[in-house]
Amino acid sequence: MATDLQLPVFTNNSENELAGRWGMVIDQDICTGCQACVAACAMENNIPFVGEADAGYGRTMHWIRIERFWQGTFPEVKMTPYQPVLCQQCHKAPCEPVCPVFASVHSVSEDINLQVYNRCVGTRYCANNCPYQVRVFNWRDYTDARQRPELVTLQNQLNPDVTVRRRGVMEKCTFCIQRIRHVEDTAQSEGRDVRDGEVVPACAQACPADAIVFGRVDDPTSKVSKAAITSRGSHMLEELGTLPRVTYLAGGSAQ
């Protein structure tokens, strides 16, 4: 007799492509590459400083990074617009089906990709299968004061709403789910719906140029939906069919 284990089922429901709830628009034309989002994200989400030695191995941990490329051949080079790259919260995420322990799961209610830290056993399949290279791995207990006494004062700035990750777990951008939950809870206690623009992730809050807009993409009147449907919009590595939830705007008057 078959037992229903209530495991997540991976289905190819492409008719729900646009049914995503949360989405982000990043305007590359007004992004100045100042890295304020990187710093804000690290502070909000308890992302540790890995130290010089581990950074040398390429183990730096950031949930958002600013990518920049050169166009043309030297000396006639021109810089492409700065591109902040974070987890694209794909509707069909390549990281999800490869996880052997269902630590990388799709949230049915919020339609974002989750990383369940206590399930994760650190196989790193998800990071290897992520086309955006946005997943980072805890190679050590970076926040353990016994192992890193030089960082003990930084313990006081840890965000109590976010898990401090242990060694051996994968982590990534969560679209600041703790802020989404807090706003939903506040809205529920006040007996109303979540207003457009009420949920502000740390990166969008810190952005001095307001290049990052966050909101509900299933609501056509929201600020993020209106920004996403302009002709400048594109998705990163769209040809892979991952249906990312982050829209990049580029090719405006700046170019």
Binding site: V108, S109, L114, V116, V162, T163, Q178, R181
Partner: peptide, 15 residues
Amino acid sequence: ATKRTKLTDCSLCHY
């Protein structure tokens, strides 16, 4: 059903 989806979602408590 909507409530159940939300209340059994991993992201409700784990983040």
